[in-house]
């Protein structure tokens, strides 16, 4: 098994797509962090001047809102929390890239007929699926490690840009949990995509289904703040209830719950905090251990693949 994983590792290391996706991921992440810093600076300027970008005076409520947003940005960008922020942001495109790479790398064994050459060497079908899944998961670990390293190295710079507070290592452990969880959550994506490719014997359907489903998960996650309901008991529209049921079983949503270890709120955090303050709760499941159980289920799916040949 270790020999097969080593062979797969060598192959992925020579594949241009692995390096292209890694460079692209880091570039996008750098732009995202830079965007957050720019947004922070802009908000601070607006609060200081009491004017918006187009010189319209800010209302007291707007100033209060801006201050709230500044606090959230500073919380995310101060060191060492910025390590966790980088890991969280990285999963946005990162999980898409994991789907693409897992589908392409596995699919080429069918399209190039190299799978036959491997099986003719006494490699079992189950062994192949297991080794490919493990190798791809380890490769995703390299991407997470690269992001974490860059976040550690650039963290002091980001911190200095975001706040005047002195650097403290408090919260380092919690910050490092994010890269770990981001990597662990790659396994269900890899495993599910490998399973689809093996069943379809080509990359196309897995790529199409994987990207579509994950895109849908992203779109649905925009609705997350609206999956909250006040304890005063407001009736939710039926389509929200159906959407919530679907979202609750998708790998992407459960990976996010696992990553955040609770409600994966990154969209409209102010609204969510306000709703929470008003006693609202989520109508979609947000228990981390439930998400872990789902992820284990998705992660274990390739073991059934050899049954279908």
């Amino acid at each position: 098994m270790h020999r097969l994983v080593a062979a797969e590792w060598l192959r992925m290391g020579r594949h241009w797509l692995s390096w292209a996706l890694l460079v692209l991921l880091i570039a996008i992440l750098a732009l995202q962090v830079n965007g957050k810093l720019n947004q922070l600076a802009q908000l601070e300027r607006e609060v200081e001047a009491g004017l918006t970008r187009d010189d319209t005076p800010l209302t007291p409520a707007q100033i209060e809102g801006n201050r709230y947003e500044i606090a959230l940005l500073q919380r995310d960008l101060r060191y060492p929390a910025s390590i966790g922020t980088a890991a969280r942001l990285g999963t946005g495109f990162g999980w898409f890239f994991v789907i693409v790479f897992a589908a392409v790398a596995t699919g080429e064994d069918f399209s190039r007929r190299t799978l036959r050459a491997l099986l003719a060497r006494g490699v079992g079908r189950a062994q192949y699926v297991l080794a490919r899944t493990l190798a791809l998961w380890l490769a995703s670990g390299v991407a997470v490690a690269a992001i974490t390293l860059l976040a550690v190295l650039s963290g002091l710079y980001t911190h200095a840009q975001a706040t005047d507070d002195p650097v403290s290592l408090a919260g380092l452990g919690e910050a490092l949990l994010y890269p770990l969880r981001a990597w662990l959550a790659c396994l269900p994506f890899v495993a599910t995509v490998v399973l689809w490719v093996v069943l379809a014997r080509q990359a196309g359907p897995a790529l199409g289904v994987g990207l579509s489903v994950h895109f849908l998960e992203h779109v649905m996650s925009f609705m997350l703040p609206f999956f909250m309901i006040s304890q005063t008991g407001v009736e939710m529209p039926w389509f929200f209830r159906v959407e919530g049921k679907i979202l609750a079983v998708t790998p992407g949503y459960n990976a996010n719950v696992f990553l955040y270890w609770g409600p994966p709120v990154s969209i409209l955090p102010q609204l969510v905090d306000a709703l929470r303050a008003a006693g609202a709760t989520f109508t979609v499941p947000t228990e981390p251990w439930r998400a872990v159980a789902f992820l284990i289920g998705y992660g274990a799916s390739p073991w059934h693949a050899p049954c279908w040949g």
Binding site: R11, R112, R113, T114, A117
Partner: peptide, 10 residues
């Protein structure tokens, strides 16, 4: 088996 299969980028 049939035609030899390889990874062309390697």
């Amino acid at each position: 088996v049939e035609t030899p299969a390889f990874y062309p980028y390697m």
